[in-house]
């Protein structure tokens, strides 16, 4: 699909042509799934986000500025749908337990890990996933966009509808919590392995 063709499909979709919208769904589903998976960290939630994002996009097509890039617009919808889903899950979780989700401070990662199990990267990855799971939905979203998606703080702010300062502090808080949660892993890694080279 070239740019002119894509514009024509979009114009038809905006007028309620469901075949045109179907072409957009087919074209963008895999990209949407990738982002949704990174944002939510699990397959089932990602599938829910994919469906909800396209439904939301369909309802909001009238608000899409035809000069804007459809991919960018959809990206924003997917990111926000993911945040909404994580919030809803957290609320259900809180209701079920009658207390908030565990915070970084009381995560099992703060225990001293068994060095042998640590050697397995699966264990590291499990602990990282656990630490990510303990972030607030907003922190997790901002962190995912920065760390996995390589988005700048400004872009994160625009994507999530936050100010730059809120976006920045969400990333900072996420990193702070991860540092705390992964501290035991890190000190072991530092003892056992050569110091990690910094990324830049």
């Amino acid at each position: 699909m070239d740019a002119a063709e894509a514009a024509a499909v979009l114009a038809r979709a905006r007028q309620g042509d469901s075949d045109a919208f179907r072409a957009l769904v087919e074209r963008h589903s895999r990209t949407v799934f990738r982002l949704a998976f990174r944002m939510t960290g699990n397959e089932q939630d990602a599938e829910d986000v994919v469906q909800e994002s396209f439904l939301r996009a369909y309802r909001q097509l009238g608000r899409f500025e035809s000069r804007a890039n459809f991919g960018t617009w959809l990206y924003r919808i997917v990111a926000n749908c993911s945040v909404d889903l994580m919030r809803a899950k957290q609320a259900r979780h809180d209701q079920a337990r009658g207390e908030p989700l565990e915070t970084a401070a009381d995560m099992p990662a703060a225990d001293t890990p068994d060095p042998q199990r640590l050697a397995e990267s699966a264990e590291i990855s499990r602990r990282v996933q656990h630490a990510l799971g303990a972030l607030s939905p907003l922190e997790r979203a901002a962190f995912t966009l920065r760390h996995y998606e390589g988005r700048s703080i400004d872009e994160i702010g625009r994507t999530l509808g936050l100010g730059t300062s809120a976006a920045k502090h969400s990333v900072f808080r996420a990193v702070k919590k991860l540092r705390h949660a992964l501290q035991p892993l890190r000190s072991l890694a530092n003892r056992g392995l050569a110091p990690q080279e910094s990324q830049r």
């Binding site: 179907r22 769904v25 087919e26 074209r27 963008h28 589903s29 895999r30 799934f33 990738r34 998976f37 990174r38 960290g41 397959e43 994919v50 469906q51 396209f54 590291i124 990855s125 990282v128 990510l132 760390h147 996995y148 990193v175 991860l178 540092r179 992964l182 892993l185 890190r186 890694a189 530092n190 110091p195 990690q196 910094s198 990324q199």
Partner: peptide, 28 residues
Amino acid sequence: YRDISSTLAMVDVPAVPERGDQYGLEVW
């Protein structure tokens, strides 16, 4: 800085499960 960078180095980009060519159609 070493502490920050070694923490962030542990957070690998997750492998995204494969979705086939028909995935878009399935979603539709």
